[in-house]
Every structure is written in structure tokens, then in C-alpha cells.
């Protein structure tokens, strides 16, 4: 697959390639010092570019075709993962994956939305857009986890719940609503991580939990910037402005009291190093779950409901 390079990544990648070429000749030539200088330069450049990303640029990073997806995190974080299938009612949704696995030796239930990496796998995964059976599969697995007292980790990464005729016929809205309802009082710890795109109800459908984590370059909002632009500006051309107005980045969501903790990404973004991104997340998840495991189910549920009940801003 051809490497995708975003416009603002170009100067970094070019410099990196230059360093790479110089390394090839460094055995014969004494250019170590020069390489170090350039390396420092590229680090500085990367830092300054990534410190000043616009909201729209972060949306682009969240959608980067090489960004790690749910199964990449499964691969790098878990051992003994056993994927489970089907909602026992209608079918098996390939846009949602889930199963038991071990995180640092302890069993968890991991559920996430799954995108594909090329046309073929994207068609198979329906571009990460779940149908009702995806949400119902997720709920079945969560209830299974609760039955055996195992914590749940969900990874959010979807451009939205699938807007199709069959999805409506099978109750897309009911499936999402039911998950919000049941997740609110599931008697085991739930940690939610927005790893890429958190598009509206489609993402939130597996997104109620005790702790809400979000990767540095993920986005989460009520609508995608393009759709927001088309509705409020009546044109597709205002996506950058829409992204700004929606305040959809991780730091924005911390300010709004929605996200508890930002998961830092490897230099240059999670797509540059899947393994490192997964190991950062793994460490944080272990820490969060250790804390949550100590809380009694009643208290856990009560605190979870209070947490969501406090969200919003109003005046009297």
C-alpha cells in the first residue's frame, strides 16, 4: 500500500528521508555529527508542527489510513486474545470486534470498532460503520464480561453508525440507546478509549464508562466536520471552520469535562509507531483498571451515572 503523507507531515518526512540516506553512507564517511544535527532539527520541526496542529489537522491524523486500529491494539497489547462473534439475534457485524484476552496477565473483555486498511478490507469492515447487530454483539459481550466479573475496555473508532435501510429496519437507534442504558449500570469496570474517530452516537454506542480516555490526535463530537459544514453552512467547503467550532480535540474535551485523560501519542502521531502507541495505552489501561477494580460494583455504577449526569453546561 502506498504511504499516505499528509500535507503538514511533508517537511518532517522529507528531512527524515534525507537522514536515512545519509545513514547509508555514514560507514564510509564521517558524517555522524551532521546526522545528529539533522536529527535534532527534525525533532524540533516535528515538535513545533505537532504543537501547533489545527483542529482539522488532528481530524486528518485521526483518519490517517495507517493509524492503528482496534485489532492492532489487540495484537500489541493483549495475549491469548479470543475473538467472539455474533449478536445471537441476527448476525455478526464485522465493523465491531470483541473478545476476551489478557492485559498484563489479567483477563479483560475488549470491544472495539474496526476499520479496514484497503478497499477490500474496508468493504468487509463496512468502513468501521456498525449496524445494529454490531451494538448488540458489543452488549452481549459486555454482559458476558459482567457475568464472569471481568472488566471491559472499549475502543472507539468509527465515522458513524451505518445510515442504511436495513440498519433502520433493525433498529439502529434502539440498539445504541439500549447500549447507553445497559452500559450505565453494568456492574464491572468500563474504560473507554477514543483511538481515532469518535463520530456521534455511532461511537458513543460503546462509549459509556467509568473512565474516558482519548488519544492526543483523535476527535470526538456530535457530528463530523464535513456534515456539520453541509448542514450549518449549506456547503461542504467549511469543514475547517466546522472543526474549529465543534471543539472536538482531546484537549477541548478535557476542558468540557467529558474526557478524563489524554493518551499521548508517539512522536509524529500513532500511525508512525503502532507498537509504541499500544504500549503507552497498555500502561495507562493497567493503571486505570487497577484503581477501578478496587471499587465495589454498587459504588462503581453510582459514580458512573453521576459522572454522566454532571455533563453539560447551563444557567438558571
Amino acid at each position: 500500500m502506498a504511504k499516505t503523507i499528509l500535507e503538514f507531515e511533508k517537511p518532517i518526512i522529507e528531512l527524515e528521508q534525507k537522514i536515512e540516506e545519509m545513514r547509508k553512507y555514514s560507514d564510509n564517511l564521517d558524517i555522524a555529527e551532521e546526522i545528529t544535527t539533522l536529527e535534532n532539527k527534525v525533532n524540533q520541526l516535528r515538535e513545533s508542527i505537532f504543537a501547533n496542529l489545527s483542529r482539522w489537522q488532528r481530524v486528518q491524523l485521526a483518519r490517517h489510513p495507517e493509524r492503528p486500529y482496534t485489532l492492532d491494539y489487540v495484537h500489541h497489547m493483549l495475549t491469548d486474545f479470543v475473538e467472539m462473534h455474533g449478536d445471537r439475534r441476527f448476525g455478526d457485524d464485522k465493523a465491531v470486534v470483541g473478545g476476551f484476552g489478557r492485559l498484563d496477565g489479567r483477563t479483560i473483555m475488549l470491544i472495539g470498532q474496526q476499520k479496514g486498511r484497503d478497499t477490500k478490507s474496508n468493504l468487509y469492515r463496512n468502513f468501521g460503520m456498525p449496524n445494529p447487530e454490531g451494538y448488540r454483539k458489543a452488549l452481549r459481550l459486555m454482559e458476558l464480561a459482567a457475568k464472569f466479573n471481568k472488566p471491559v475496555v472499549t475502543l472507539l473508532d468509527t465515522p458513524g453508525a451505518y445510515p442504511g435501510i436495513e440498519a433502520e429496519e433493525r433498529g439502529q437507534a434502539e440498539a445504541i440507546a439500549r447500549n447507553l442504558f445497559e452500559m450505565s449500570h453494568l456492574p464491572v469496570p468500563i474504560v473507554v478509549v477514543i483511538i481515532g474517530e469518535g463520530a456521534s452516537g455511532g461511537a458513543l454506542g460503546i462509549g459509556v464508562g467509568d473512565r474516558i480516555l482519548m488519544f492526543e490526535n483523535a476527535w470526538y463530537s456530535v457530528i463530523a466536520p464535513e456534515s456539520c459544514s453541509s448542514i450549518l453552512w449549506r456547503s461542504w467547503d467549511f469543514k475547517e471552520q466546522a472543526a474549529e467550532a465543534l471543539k472536538l480535540t482531546a484537549p477541548d474535551l478535557v476542558d468540557q469535562g467529558i474526557v478524563d485523560r489524554i493518551v499521548p501519542e508517539p512522536p509524529g502521531g500513532a500511525h508512525r509507531n503502532h507498537e509504541q502507541a499500544a504500549s503507552i495505552l497498555k500502561k495507562i489501561l493497567v493503571e486505570e483498571l487497577d484503581t477501578l477494580r478496587k471499587i465495589k460494583p454498587d459504588k462503581l455504577v453510582k459514580t458512573r451515572i453521576e459522572k454522566f449526569a454532571a455533563m453539560g453546561a447551563w444557567k438558571e
Binding site: 445504541i176 440507546a177 447507553l180 442504558f181 450505565s184 449500570h185 456521534s200 452516537g201 458513543l204 462509549g207 459509556v208 470526538y220 463530537s221 456530535v222 457530528i223 467550532a245 465543534l246 471543539k247 472536538l248 477541548d252 474535551l253 468540557q256 467529558i258 458512573r304 451515572i305 454522566f308 449526569a309 455533563m311 453539560g312 453546561a313
Partner: peptide, 15 residues
């Protein structure tokens, strides 16, 4: 109200 509106889905369902 962007994500704050989205959270009202979770809030009302939790209640």
C-alpha cells in the same frame, strides 16, 4: 453544543 450535546444521550439514558 457539539460533544456536550452528544453526552446528553448518555446522560439521559444513564438516568
Amino acid at each position: 453544543e457539539a460533544a456536550l450535546s452528544l453526552m446528553q444521550l448518555a446522560k439521559t439514558s444513564a438516568k
